[in-house]
Nucleic acid binder design. Structure first.
Lengths: 188, 188
DNA sequence: ACGTACGTACAGTAAAAACTTTACGATCTT
DNA sequence: AAGATCGTAAAGTTTTTACTGTACGTACGT
């Protein structure tokens, strides 16, 4: 079940070859999203599938265990790169790739980068308060003040950067970024 | 040598604690850049250092082998997150963090994401040509045409997305993005 | 209610990555 | 030129990650 049923074997092979090139290319580069190669290939496989897939179908196509498919799908779901869909009459879970890649990118930043950003912000703020506190307690200690100032300065710079970064991610989520760089229209 | 020489031990400890919190937070989240935890911690360490560091100093501070520092620095150099600096009279290599985080982010996209983008583009274009070629050779085969069209459509959509993404990265490298989202000014 | 099918938790294993030790070539000092 | 110092390549070890097979809880069909 690859959506090519009924095609002459010779032609099907050509299509498969063309697909495989894209699948492997995309799959390999998905490490940028923190996705392993095999899960990236799974994504690539599903990308060319025109129907939602079940875990069993994936396992057969990937020649891997169903368990692996389960974990792979889960990490793809976490990033909203695939969606679960429902079809009446099917007991099995069905999944398909999110076809809107702009949305996928926005989700990725919203999920992963925003979380990292918030964790870092929290640490930076807490440490900033502590250092400022220490500075306030020994206003006459020149050496201490100098040392503290450089640390505080770095933290403030980092905070400013993260504030900017936060706004950038916002623009992805709201879609304002597309006013700055409009979505491209596909050929023909 | 942590830039805190001469500070009262009690106060130094407080500063170290504040630094450590930030270092660990940043270090952990550097996996988004494809940097391992220990190399991320190395980056964090260097972030608070006010002087360029040698591999030996890093090894001592991190309690790790010099070889590890060497490889860590290399991956940070690849992403331009640290810079090599020269001081006359020193035989040892010296490194310091790139303090401009906006630049660091732009470099990251320019180096990693752009490369992935180009690889994918190449695969997509090649497969597109092959599929269009196949379509041209059997214009009367309805079933084949339908199948090919869906694949070709997907590829064209992907190409459009990557075209947009390319422009986005451009805007980081040229700095135009800051016209859309201005850099933030640090407090005080 | 019982049997069956499904997804996943869990434990074990195989593969990969991270880290250290050792060794070596290059460069500088004397 | 000999000796010392530096960075890293290479090999070996340890730790982590990826994957599989089994087992279990849940839900559905009869």
């Amino acid at each position: 079940m690859n959506g090519l049923e009924g095609i002459a074997p010779e032609q099907e092979q050509l299509i498969q070859k063309a697909r495989k090139r894209v699948i492997e290319s995309i799959g390999k580069n998905m490490d940028l999203y923190g996705i392993t190669l095999s899960h990236g290939l799974l994504y690539g496989l599903m990308f060319f599938q025109n129907k939602p897939m079940t875990l069993d179908e994936m396992g057969e196509a990937m020649e891997m265990s169903k368990t692996s498919m389960s974990t792979g799908i889960r990490s793809l779901l976490d990033l909203k790169m695939v969606n679960q869909v429902w079809e009446k009459g099917s007991r099995k879970d069905l999944y398909e790739v999110e076809s809107d890649w702009y949305q996928t990118l926005a989700d990725f930043f919203g999920i992963k980068w925003r979380k990292a950003l918030e964790i870092n912000l929290q640490s930076l703020r807490k440490s900033l308060v502590e250092l400022q506190d220490l500075a306030d307690r020994f206003p006459e200690d020149e050496l201490l003040q100098t040392c503290l100032l450089t640390d505080i300065d770095k933290i403030k710079n980092a905070l400013a950067y993260y504030k900017w970064f936060d706004k950038l991610i916002d623009s992805f989520e709201t879609g304002e970024i597309y006013q700055f760089i409009p979505k491209e229209v596909p050929d023909k």
